[in-house]
Every structure is written in C-alpha cells, then in structure tokens.
Design a protein around this nucleic acid. Sequence first.
RNA 1: UGCCCGGUAGCUCAGUGGCAGAGCAGGUGACUGUUAAUCACUUGGUCGCUGGUUCGAUCCCAGCCCGGGCAGCCA
Length: 465
Amino acid sequence: MQRTLVKDALHATAPTDTIFLQGWVRTRRDAKAFSFVELNDGSCLKGLQIVVDASLADYPAVAHAHTGAAIEVTGKLVASKGAGQQWEVVATSFKVIGEADGTYPLQKKGHSLEFLREIAHLRPRSNLFGAVFRVRSRLAYAVHQFFQERGFHYVHPPIITASDAEGAGEMFRVTTLDLENPPRGADKHVDATKDFFGKKTFLTVSGQLEAEIFACALSNVYTFGPTFRAENSNTSRHAAEFWMIEPEVAFCDLTGDMDLAEEFVKHLLRDVKTHCAEDLEFFGKFVDKDLAARLDFVLEKPFVRCSYTEAVEIIAQSGKTWEHPVSWGDNLQAEHERYLTEEHFKCPVTVYNYPRALKAFYMRVNAPDAQGRETVAAMDLLVPGIGEIIGGSQREERLDVLRESMARHHLDEKAYWWYLDLRRYGSVPHAGFGLGFERMLMFATGVANIRDVIPFARTPGAAEF
RNA sequence: UGCCCGGUAGCUCAGUGGCAGAGCAGGUGACUGUUAAUCACUUGGUCGCUGGUUCGAUCCCAGCCCGGGCAGCCA
C-alpha cells in the first residue's frame, strides 16, 4: 500500500477509509481503553495523532512504541474528536518497526542546543532541527531557482586547488605524502613534486577565480558548493567547512553587483517566507520573536548603500565610545558594522569602496578621491544580528593595473598566468560576490549559531560524525 | 589564538567542607479524548579528569580535558 506523508494527510479535505503512514513516535499518551500516539515523519513540523483502541489485536505493540520508535500504521483518517487538531487516524493496524528504549536521548521536553549538537545524528528528529533542515533544503532550491531564472549557468569549480586564492584565509593542505617520513629534496624541505599532483594542493577557499573564467565565456555564472577555511576561528558565525554561493557576471560594474546581491537576498527570504511558513512560525515562537517582523522589514525597504568613507564619518560622529576607534584606512570592526546596521541605519547596509590597502589584489582600483586616497570597488553587505553576509567586488580587468596590484601583494605572476590571460584576451569589466549559505540560513531562521544550521559542523577541534 | 563563563542522574537544573536533591525521561499501577496529559509509587550518581590543602573535598586551590560566549580573521 502507498505511504501517505503526514504533511499530505494533514492537508486532507475529506476523511479517508484507508491510509498508510510510516514514521517515528514523538510522544504517547495512554488511557485505560486506548492510546494516543503522535507520529512524525519529517515531512512537516506537525505530527499526526494516531488513536489506537485497546480492543485492537495490535494493541500490545503500543506498549513498545516509546518516543523515538519507528512505526507503521494503517487506519482511517477521520475528523478529530479532540480539540488540538483537525485530523487524526484511527488505527486498524499498528506495528513497531524499530524500537527505541528509555535511553533514547530526545525527550518531549526542550533540550539545549549544546546537547543536541552532541547528538547530531538524532537532532534532525527534533522540531527545531527538522525545521532548520527543511528550510535549508528549500533555501538551496531557491538559490538555483533565482540564478537559473535569470540565465545564469551553474559551474563547478574544483574542490582541490593549487591556487592559493590570496586573502581568503588559511588553507587545508591536501596530500598523499607519508607525513611520518615525507620525501625531501636536496635542501631538506619536503619535496612537493613527489606529491599526488606534483605540487602543493589545498582545499578551495573560494571558487571565484575559476568562476571569473566561466563568466568571461558564459557571461552569467554562479557556483554553489563546499568551501574550506583552516582559520582557528571560534565564533558562532564561523565553520571550517561551509557552503558558499558565488555569482560572477561579465559586463557588470559594482553598482550592478550590489543590485544583484540585494535582489538575491530578497528573493531568498521571500521564497522561504512563502514556502516554509509553518517552520518560520516555529522559529518566531521559540528562537527569535522578532523574526517575522525583521523579514518583512528587510523585504519592504531598499538596502542602504554607504561608502566606506561615509561609514567612517558616521562612526566617528556617533558619539559612542569604541573599543577600536576608527580612522580612514582602518578595517571596520565588528562593533562598527553592528552599529551601522543595527543602530544607525536599522537596516541591511551595503558598504562599498574600501581602501585599496585593506583588500584583495583582484579588486578593481577606483580613481583616487580629492585627497588622493585610493579605494577599490569592493562591497560588503551587513545585516543585523550577523554582520557580514556577502562580500564582493568588481574585478580588476585592466592588465597593467592588475599586475601592479599583484606586485604590491608580492604574488608570483607565473602562478596566476591563466588569470592574467583573461585580461589579455577579450577582457571585460566583471563583478561578483560570495554569500555564506549558512549565514543566510541563520538570518532567515533566527538561529544564532552556525553549528545549528549545518548538518555536521566542522569547527576547530571538532569533526565528529 | 586571547579574554570571560560553565561541567552534579539519560535531559534541564538546584545544592552543600560532614549519608547526593527536584522536575522530566525510564519502570509499575490508576484514569472514557489526551495534546510537554494528569495522579500515586519507583529504578537511576566515578558530582569532567589528575594532583594538592584538610580528620574529612562534589564543594577550597592548581593543572588539564570538554562545552559555551565575546574578540580577532572572514562568508
């Protein structure tokens, strides 16, 4: 018999004589003559109430249907006599497929997020994590939908790379060399030419440089895949392995890039709001009371755009005492970014045109300002509660300027020969950005820790599961 | 990596320099419709680890381990 998902059963418009369900027991309530079993199959937040009469031949099985047990139920879908739900199933058959005894760690009571992280193999069965991972799935779909509908092509840059995408942080080394006894050259250093790829290789920290190649051929492209950073970062917004989306657009300047970023963020939030309404309502109730208001607010208003130079002035004139006072040329600190987006503008803010010295070599150099200060066409999108969610730039398409920037960063042109070739043959203005998928998910759900929006978090000292 | 907070039953937590506590979960029973059901009874402990102080340490001290928060770095 065909299985019906709880989600579909709950949306029934009429009673059904026979329905077949499979799932896991969330809770059970026994009376003298019958039991209530709440069945959840992950298809949606809510469970379906199963009523098992004590006269049923299968009734003894109910005693084994503890919280967490896997069950199969056949029965009639009927209007519930109780107050809490529209539909319930009166069982005609009730089978326990996989028992769960009293050591099952998930209880009906609330658990701390820290505890649930330690049982990452079971936490998807909780209300909160079921909701998180349904939203994660939908959000990934919305990413593809947004770009595909706009004529962007999905490209797959390599996970293993020899190019040290400068400025993006520490990299994980990939090697098959014997670490106990590596081959050494005449200079006693480890001989990387003996390694699997004949050179030093790493896990990618960004697919951007490769995406530029494809943008300069297919015009509009995006990547969406895992990204690795070996920084020893211990914060609620950093993971060593995360998913990143990197669109790259040919014939596009920084303004077009900021437009795309804003449209993209709004599309994702709008989509989740439409298609994950029940899960978002749950987050609004138990995770972040202001979630719904914040999402509406973000969708309604245009994001503020503010140049780095203006931002520095706003921060200086705020009248606040800063742990790190800022003057032109300094990096904006977390406290400054938070002030801009949470207090001053109370809105997502795109800060653009950063000092050249602070940013990566590939960013396009702007004309100096009246005081002769050099900036690059970079932008960061800051959102309340999280901070930087997007970082992007227009890329330097002029060969001579790019070579000068590389020299400033002490980069070897030979290692970037193919990147320079793009500027030699049919070079065009182009721009792109990177959006941290998990940070977007945090923003969309209100979940405060990145470890709780990724199935199995990889952070310094932690790679369980 | 730095600074700060924490670790007591399966979970959430209280507590004390002198026999280890509650609620929930588990078990037994009761209950004619429950919704984190309720009620009665009940099982359950290396008080993170190691060392020190003490007649006596779960409690005080030191080191270590683990978890969390913030900062830096970033998406």
